[in-house]
């Protein structure tokens, strides 16, 4: 009987204690994230002052807006290109790191440093490198190539990708390393005994073992991809080249123009899409488990 009671109360005493400790953080999350989000959703159905109910007209206006469509397409394209690249590059970095142990710790530090560099410094470096009279163009001209207008052409998109990869490789690499450490060594031994080569070991031991980590890394990378807006904004201003005109640019400009209703509607749409993606990823990996 006592055991049955325990099953009906899965969290038990320890769980309740944990809940109390989590309370301050939860209160902060509620106050600074959840409540504002609920207010944002509410505002997406009202005028800027919140006095006139607009219904779905704001959503309709957002979805039909050319700027929103362009920004969405750019953001989707950016995510579709940078996330796989980042996952691949960081995974390779993790493997490399393990292969050159113990010297790999310097390598790890080097890859983590970009995360610690302030955005303003990144912007300065960016300008020095990619300005029309910057170092890269100077190098190109010296070697007989023509200069590239990095921020005024489609090249801006790849500069943004490069910045994102540079900033986040180290972080994702750490997550992969944790995942790799979580794969029992016995499985590698068993694979070796069975005569599996490097590639087969990777396909049938490493990759399946990394699946839980894969989901986490993908979600975090997706969320970090939105932070690259800071560099784009500081370098190119509120109206950059169209290839790097992202959703955050649109939100920023709508806020400046006090177009709050459409801003909230667009933010709600974005949030809904992201939530669906994240839930889909979680569900996929849950089924895999």
């Amino acid at each position: 009987m006592r055991q049955e009671r325990k099953r009906k109360q899965p969290y038990g005493r320890e769980g309740r204690v944990a809940a109390w400790f989590l309370l301050p953080s939860l209160a902060g999350t509620l106050l600074f994230f959840l409540l504002p989000f609920i207010d944002t959703v509410r505002r997406s159905f009202f005028s800027a002052k919140g006095t006139r109910f607009e219904g779905l007209s704001l959503y309709r206006s957002v979805l039909q807006n050319d700027a929103f469509q362009l920004a969405s397409a750019n953001t989707a394209k950016f995510i579709a290109v940078c996330i796989p690249l980042l996952l691949l590059a960081s995974l390779l970095a993790a493997f490399l790191m393990r292969a050159i142990r113990p010297a790999g710790r310097w390598f790890k530090t080097g890859l983590l440093l970009p995360m610690a560099v302030p955005v303003a410094s990144v912007v300065v470096v960016w300008k020095v490198l990619f300005h029309e009279k910057g170092l890269i163009n100077a190098f190109l001209l010296e070697n007989g190539f023509s200069a590239v207008d990095f921020m005024g052409t489609d090249a801006a998109f790849w500069v943004l990708i490069l910045t994102y990869l540079w900033k986040n490789i180290g972080y994702d690499m750490i997550l992969w390393l944790v995942g790799l450490d979580g794969i029992p060594h016995r499985q590698y031994e068993a694979a070796a005994v069975d005569g599996a080569g490097v590639w087969r070991t990777f396909l049938h031991v490493t990759l399946p073992g990394l699946m839980p980590t894969f989901g986490l890394v993908a979600i975090l990378s997706l969320l970090n991809s939105f932070k690259v807006f800071r560099e784009a904004y500081l370098v190119a201003g509120p109206y950059p080249h169209e290839s790097i005109y992202l959703l955050q640019h649109l939100f920023n400009n709508w806020f400046v123009n006090l177009d709050i209703g459409r801003l909230c509607a667009a933010a709600t749409i974005l949030c809904t899409v992201l939530l669906c993606i994240i839930l889909a990823i979680q569900r996929y990996f849950k089924e895999e488990d």
Partner: peptide, 9 residues
């Protein structure tokens, strides 16, 4: 284009 598109209703 971007600035003008943002204003479009």
């Amino acid at each position: 284009a971007g600035a003008l598109a943002e204003r479009q209703n």
